[in-house]
């Protein structure tokens, strides 16, 4: 194994890893908003609004993220949508993960015992107040864990934006394999970076989970 080479290419990979983190974090952030809107739409009183939200979620989950990415990046200009590669990665990532996340959030909310809703409503709390004070605090734990799983998927999915030439970790790894002819060394280093990122996400998720569910440990 060529240790010198690994030391030499490490800075390049670290820099690319930061792009991976950046693009994933932004997609997660916007994805959360999209997911919240979708959850609201799915519980709308107007049936067509509910159907539309369900159709969107079904189509996004039923087609490959990779094809979505290619469609928006290469096909977008045909409908007047021109995005630079990085923005395209963030936007498609957010709209993709948002669909999955809306299901995760809905599942977490539905996991709270219906008696909690009744008790709160019987005290005179409205729907939104009940959601805010009673349901969400109890759903938060499960929600954080499922969003965490999706965040990890998002990090791994972000490798696909290398195809539209965003210089993130996988793009850089592929280029370095091509220029150094040392696939093992490059793979090991870039795999290590993904592992570090994913374990960092897992750590944050665990921290937030413990904070959100402190009451169950007391």
């Amino acid at each position: 194994m060529d240790i010198n080479l690994m030391i030499e290419i490490a800075p390049l990979l670290v820099k690319a890893a930061w792009v991976t983190v950046d693009i994933s974090a932004r997609a997660l952030f916007f994805g959360f908003f999209i997911a919240s809107v979708l959850v609201a739409l799915r519980t709308s009183q107007t049936p067509p609004v509910r159907w539309l939200a369900r159709a969107y979620i079904s189509v996004v989950r039923g087609t490959p993220y990779f094809v979505q990415l290619l469609l928006v990046f290469y096909g977008g200009p045909a409908i007047g949508l021109r995005l630079d590669p990085f923005t395209c990665g963030v936007v498609v990532g957010a709209f993709n993960i948002g669909a999955y996340m809306s299901e995760a959030i809905r599942g977490a909310i539905e996991s709270v015992d219906s008696g909690q809703n009744e008790a709160s409503r019987s005290l005179g709390f409205g729907r939104l107040e009940t959601l805010r004070h009673i349901i969400l605090p109890q759903a938060a734990g499960l929600m954080i864990r499922s969003v965490g799983v999706l965040a990890i998927i998002l990090v791994k999915n972000s490798s696909l934006v290398s195809i539209i030439s965003v210089v993130e970790l996988t793009y850089q790894a592929q280029r370095l394999i091509g220029s150094t002819y040392k696939p093992l060394e490059v793979f090991m280093l870039s795999a290590l970076m993904y592992i570090v990122i994913i374990y960092a996400v897992m750590g944050i998720v665990e921290f937030l989970y413990r904070r959100a569910t402190r009451y169950t440990f007391r």
Partner: peptide, 16 residues
């Protein structure tokens, strides 16, 4: 509802 108190079979205390 603010003028009525309801007590449930399964308590439904807020666990958090």
């Amino acid at each position: 509802r603010q003028n009525m108190g309801m007590v449930f079979q399964h308590f439904n205390l807020f666990p958090h």
